[in-house]
Simulated assay, not measured.
Amino acid sequence: MKMMKPLALGLTAAAFAAQAFAADVTIRLAHLNPEDPFQSHSGAMAAVFKSLVESSSNGAIEVQLFPNGQLGKDDEVIEQVRAGIVESVISSAGGVAAHYPLVGVFDIPFAFPNIGVASRVMTKDSAFGAKFVADMEGATGLKVLGLIDSGGFFAFTNSKQPITSVEDMAGMRIRTMTLPTHEAIISSLGGQPTPLPWAEVYTALQTGVADGQMNPVPIIAFAKFDEVQKYLSITNHVITPYIWTMNADFYAGLSDEHRTLINWASEVATESGRAMSRIIEASENGLPKLAEKMEVNVVPPLEQAKFAEAAQPAVRALIEAQYGAAGLEMLDALLSSIEVEKGAF
């Protein structure tokens, strides 16, 4: 593991020093998004977890929250958790990819037919989820507490024109997470992928460094991209995970009683986050809010099929090239799980 920069360590130490505690156990939980539980699913997860753990432990465990990327970039905070400097973090796929690249298997475009199937597959308790979590834990040494979608299916926003067909993507600079699979999606559609960390996205869109970006509607809303983007195109082309991890040594060092509490509280909190994403999508804080400033269009199924025809082979080829047989085996396990869950509806 690479050495952390002294400045990052200093800032982290200063942030921790500002929060005195007297509990027997302290859990520092970080995430990228707003603290308000009604603005983001990770905010809801953190708030519910804190409430359940502190009340059910009768104050023996204190949960300190660090929202809005206070402790650094996503991949940096995961590094802090692996090093034992921070106890826990709820991370985007972009941050996880630096530590566990196979998270990219979720990025096969148009694989999930609806949010119901996605919710059944993208959980640590599903057959695929259990396989994925076991592999990630073995590769990283982290304890996985939760697996959840990042807020819903991705849509495109941009400042140039409505995206109604693959041809509209030509030459458009689209910000992506630092995920090779996302870069492959944009390249296969004729766009120019512009990988940037989350903290730089708003400014990049505002200054024209990037023409557009892709994210779920709840994230587009709380990030206020409607202030710097004119067009919102509903493509539902991909859905990515957020993964909640904890330092494995810290987890193992808890008492049996406290581990049991952490397990059920994180499960309840994760389901609360899943529900909050759906609520935000359906509320005035979701698409209706964005439509007040943005021109919204829905890409019809026939055009979506053309997007899929262009992007699916590119992502599969990248997974095979970068991750070999292990990558294809994990991808095919995901696709098989999706096919099974389709039968539930």
Rank of each mutant, 00 (worst) to 15 (best):
A317D: 15
D332E: 13
I27M: 05
I243R: 04
P218F: 00
W264F: 12
G69E: 06
V48E: 03
W264L: 07
E292L: 14
F250T: 06
K230R: 15
G208N: 11
M1G: 13
A248S: 08
F106E: 00
T203V: 14
D211F: 03
T270F: 02
R28W: 03
G286Q: 03
Q229N: 14
T12E: 05
K230S: 11
V298I: 15
I262H: 00
T157S: 09
D125P: 05
H31R: 05
G343Y: 04
K342N: 03
G129N: 09
I319Q: 00
A118S: 13
V48S: 01
L318H: 00
G190L: 10
M214F: 12
I185D: 00
A97C: 12
A308N: 11
Y100W: 09
V217R: 01
P216S: 14
E320Q: 15
L102Y: 06
E339D: 14
N297D: 07
P218A: 10
V238K: 00
E339R: 12
F16L: 14
Q192H: 13
V315N: 01
P313I: 04
V89S: 10
E281D: 14
Q161N: 13
F132S: 05
A17V: 08
K160M: 11
M4D: 08
V238T: 08
I163G: 02
V86Y: 03
F132E: 02
Y202H: 12
A83G: 12
L318Q: 05
Q70M: 13
D211V: 08
G141K: 10
A275L: 14
M294N: 03
Q161T: 15
S88D: 08
